[in-house]
Design a protein around this nucleic acid. Sequence first.
DNA 1: CCACTCTTTGTGAACGTGCACACCGGCACT
DNA 2: AGTGCCGGTGTGCACGTTCACAAAGAGTGG
Lengths: 356, 356
Amino acid sequence: MNVHTGTDASGYVTSETPPEAKRPRAPSIRDVAKLAGVSHQTVSRVLNNHPSIRDETKSRVLAVMGELQYRPNRAARALVTSRSRTIGVLTSHRSEYGPASSIQAIEEAAVLQGYLVVTANAEGADSHSIARAITHLLDQAVEGIVVIAPQVRVFDTLAEMQLDLPFVTLQSTGRLNDHALSVDQMTGARLATRHLIELGHRGIYHLAGPQDWIEAEARMEGFLREMGDQDVPTTAPILGDWTAEFGYHAGRELLRVRDFTAIFSSNDQMALGLMHAIHDEGLDVPRDISVVGFDDIPEAAHFWPPLTTVRQDFAELGRRCVALLIDHDELPEGTDAPGSVIPTLVVRSSTAPPSA
Amino acid sequence: MNVHTGTDASGYVTSETPPEAKRPRAPSIRDVAKLAGVSHQTVSRVLNNHPSIRDETKSRVLAVMGELQYRPNRAARALVTSRSRTIGVLTSHRSEYGPASSIQAIEEAAVLQGYLVVTANAEGADSHSIARAITHLLDQAVEGIVVIAPQVRVFDTLAEMQLDLPFVTLQSTGRLNDHALSVDQMTGARLATRHLIELGHRGIYHLAGPQDWIEAEARMEGFLREMGDQDVPTTAPILGDWTAEFGYHAGRELLRVRDFTAIFSSNDQMALGLMHAIHDEGLDVPRDISVVGFDDIPEAAHFWPPLTTVRQDFAELGRRCVALLIDHDELPEGTDAPGSVIPTLVVRSSTAPPSA
DNA sequence: CCACTCTTTGTGAACGTGCACACCGGCACT
DNA sequence: AGTGCCGGTGTGCACGTTCACAAAGAGTGG
């Protein structure tokens, strides 16, 4: 591991400060102005492409900017406008596939709008670390927060801190909105559940995620409703923690009774652990037990057997979050985003009709 | 999906601006000063805990800060000090486990030092998108860059742009340093290879990563050296792209000849694809073919069969990067970081002696 | 008691940008 | 010709912080 500075070929041998070094201050708006023979304000106008500026002036200024390699100073701008053009992302489990790809999409979308993204991970997801994460974001003067985390607790903490900050989550909350759970996640869960029912399964378990995650709640809700609608007797879902490890142990536990022929897992990782447990018992997927996941992480197609799962368009979700956050005041207050992202069922080889 | 503003319970019905609203400017250093009965400079000194300040004064100022919920304005500070206290992370494949967890570690370490982390993803990893990513980082006035990407190209681009910016990579480059490849990655690869050789395998393939990733190069180098040292005839490594998908197709291809009994894959995802291909052919892992991965992603323990792999301490790597970057001028120029992170071999069930 | 130092505090000027306002010239309308 | 307006440009200040410098008070040594 090494540190490099770009140009290492300088001829200096002495470690004294090279004569007349005095790191030559980056060019400012005024330097550009002087060289272009205009006032700094004109340069500023070019920068913010103000309408009334003569084309010729504009191009002259732009030319000088290129020549000087001018870069607007974000700090100065933030200082005077008192707008940071920064949005914060609050996560937990940020290195897992779902959150990670959402972050990526958020970042891409934000950059496109000239915004900066700052992330803060609340490992452990307890109130304390959530508060710490929020504080970090606040220190960066974020203008809004995207929440990819146990939202209930985040909301509570946010309220506790009495912040008047716009925030947005990957799903509508079901709390502030009186259980107006977002359709998409639920639809996905229903899709998965229906698939199992249509294959002929009746003993179906649901391995849910932590219930203070809205996604988890919505998926569970979808499962329960679909089971209800189709008059299939339902057993209580098991509450997991998203990890393969948990899926494995839950599987071991479940298989001691084995009063089921299918499991719908709230994400792909837990499904993987589940299949591991099933294999460990000498059973086969899908012959003995069918498994459905959720998310369609890139690896899911190569699990053994390849996993039937629900594909989530994380990127699209991320993009919408940003859109909503950035021009949220242009939307009528309280309306849901038009056209939810609809997840699709990807049928692979981990599901089959129950074996007689 | 919904946008919320923290306090929604305000009594206003009209959407007119509430009387005397004028968003009450966040408290500044001067507000604190006034209330504490000192000068703004004294407050500043408390902030930067300057040595010569009376304890009593200090605590009084701190008290007022707490009372006012004062937060230092980062932009103002950056403006005057012309230091952004920001470091950039340049990635590609950022949502994959390895990069993602490194980023997380980097961020944690950076925050601890009062630094901000900005990420930029060069999707596609071509020169153009790398340049774009670097530009984005530059716009944030980053003070240094951590590279988690095809480093060769990043270095070239950096050089092309003639930037005098400290940067650090997860591994020393092998280019600038005349092939002083970092030991750790190589050691890991040797560990994996030796494990296979010791089990009795002789026909061993290596599925490598893209060769402009230093990690990939180092792992391949480790494989080749170990094979050489142990006098095992070597076949040319296959160059992959880190994805399970590629591993699968490479596996299908390889199995048409089947002149091997073991494969060492440069990461876990490709190993997963490989095992998928092997299963597809009706073969068994490890009975017919042994597979070793690299990284030990959390899912690896639950692959079928559970994957023998090399554990990487991404978090530690991230932490070191930051340490190196932030106080890099305190280290003697050009020395490697003391005590590389040594990866360990995790033996699970995907490896066994060759079947006769 | 003076000269000096050291600690603790204050004063004023930057930093680079955007905003409010003023200014100038030309055109259209009266 | 005067009045008003509009496109295009310039002037000065403000944003919140740190830095360089100075000043006031306390202590110390001769």
